[in-house]
Amino acid sequence: MNTAMQNPKSIESFELYAPKLATKEEFFVGGHRACQGCGEALAIRLMCKALGKDTVITNATGCMEVISSVYPTTAWNLPWIHVAFPNSASVGSGVEAGLTALRRKGKIADRRIKSVAIGGDGGTMDIGFQALSGAMERGHDMLYVCFDNEAYMNTGIQRSSGTPFLAATTTAPAGKVVPGNQVWKKNLPEIMVAHNVPYVATACQSYPIDFMNKVKKARQVKGPSYIHCFVTCPTGWRSPSETCIKLGRLALETGIFPLYEVEDGKYRMTVEVPEKRRPVQEYLKGQGRFRHLTPDQIQVIQERVDIEWDMLMIKVQNSKSRAELRAKRAK
């Protein structure tokens, strides 16, 4: 018996403290078909809690659409639409345009309903990249959340532009000559910052409060916002289900996937990373997709992570928001 059950008044009691942090209402309900320890399904559940009722979700084709919507069942307690793989950003932009027009014309109730489009790394960074760029650039009042599990999991773990350097996937296998994926992961949050999106953030299912706070913040933005949520996929990463949360934490503590937000152009770290970051080795070793790596290759990854970290710190230390710059000019 755990402590909470023995003493429901203790701080570990879910009943006591959890409702203050997140609603107990479920908008993405159980009974769906995600694998055990799926970080993506967990992240979606958290996202929905943070979004609340007045939300319309547009889902790209991918694991989450498949596991949640096998006709005649659905895991969604929010209005939800799925059209295809490359277009959740454009469908979501149409949802926003439709709701806005109907509200303005008095055809639906006069209240703000947020259009939220979601997709995997494939549906966002690759095939849906153009649609995402268009939707963000056009300034729709919508949130886009990319759930990045670093490969096309739904179709059998093929490589995407979110796949990390040297990871083995089914289309970038660890061969005798070519040891896995040959290029570095594309930095999509940075590309979204370059779109002048007012709010861009990174997140991870292992930091639920941080993620939900970001979702709430993004929801408030009047205009486009983007969250890049790093999610564990035990099936695709060849990692034990029970390490779902641990791997997300290691990704942060090694500096591989730092959690930050960029508000109006200003960078800010949202979850502290230990002064002495853990060696990347600790993150890599628990995953079958990195099993083939040699010490030299791990060293190459370590150096890259260190440099990327430094680059990010330069932004965190020096970036200014547009509002700050405007105020400075006005003086």
Binding site: V56, T58, I81, V83, A84, N87, S90, V91, G92, S93, G94, V95, E96, A97, G98, L99, A101, L102, K107, I108, S115, A131
Partner: peptide, 10 residues
Amino acid sequence: SSAMGASATG
């Protein structure tokens, strides 16, 4: 695609 999203809102 966006036409579909809009149409789906009514």
